[in-house]
Design a binder for these strands. Structure first.
Ligand code: FES
Ligand code: FES
Lengths: 143, 143
DNA sequence: CATATAAAGGATAAAAATGTCTTTTAATCT
DNA sequence: AGATTAAAAGACATTTTTATCCTTTATATG
């Protein structure tokens, strides 16, 4: 569905959204521990996210990672897109060139519009939206 | 979502369902060509499917692979299960131990019931069912 | 300016998935 | 029985994903 790296990315971004601010930056290693993501690997993922302006970072003493207000408005889809590329989620289950209603493969109807809905949800929901759910106790960020 | 190997497996099984019978077996290489699956790799996949009685096979001259009537009644889920194991599809998007409504991770609701529905469809639809769709022109087996 | 801090970047390693090749086993046919 | 056919099995190669380590660059502070 989505790669391990994308899972790491989403978890890290949500952790930052919940626990950091521009005035309270967090070190890579301090995200690694509570989220159970290998430190060095997470650093790479954060690097990539930072390069694409999905998370904010500052080097040096007092530095670290955080989410700007703009960062929090980013749709979850963009995180996955940056890490996994753009056709991992939308591609056909049986590797047809295009996955659409006009030329469905035999498995297309088994997935139904579910895949399309999922992608739509990923595009419409921002980091902020998911954080709100967590704050309201509707969902839980796994450790 | 599902592995490449599973895609190969489903494609090969459907190809067999459409083109083979106990009296007309098909060689691995003759499935490989029309389905664009690497010959040697497909042989391995078929081997595994045969070991789990998902496809039937006979060695020697006049031998090959085919689907028995029983084979055709197998749910698609079983094919994926044999190749990918049982928790690739049902596992949590953020690697929580359990994926359920009681303790949803922040992404759980974005997937919604789509994943559950998909798995249900995979369990309820047999090889035969998908073949019927193809025969009726409702779907197309990709080459 | 010197030093410490922390991310960025590059190089490498380990594991898993994918793909290929060769040998063995079972079945058929002469 | 001997030869041929085709899957089963095992060994090996490549690629991708995941993970670790080391060096460099940027920033802050004394
Ligand atoms: S066409 Fe294959 S999943 Fe849509
Ligand atoms: S709990 Fe994470 S996807 Fe269901």
């Amino acid at each position: 569905m989505i790669s391990n790296s994308s899972k790491y990315a989403v978890k890290a971004v949500l952790y930052l959204a919940l626990n950091s601010s521009e005035s309270h930056k967090i070190l890579a290693k301090d995200i690694s521990s509570p989220t159970n993501i290998p430190k060095a690997y997470l650093a790479k993922v954060l690097q990539e996210l930072s390069r694409h302006n999905i998370v904010s970072s500052v080097k040096g003493p007092g530095g670290g990672f955080y989410l700007s207000e703009d960062n929090k408005k980013i749709p979850i889809m963009k995180i996955i897109h940056v890490i996994d590329g753009d056709n991992r989620l939308t591609s056909c289950m049986l590797s047809l060139q295009e996955c659409d209603e006009e030329n469905p493969c035999p498995m297309h109807d088994l997935v139904g519009n579910t895949k399309v809905n999922f992608v739509k949800n990923l595009e419409q929901n921002t980091v902020e939206d998911l954080v709100e759910d967590i704050r309201e106790g509707k969902s839980f960020l796994p450790l």
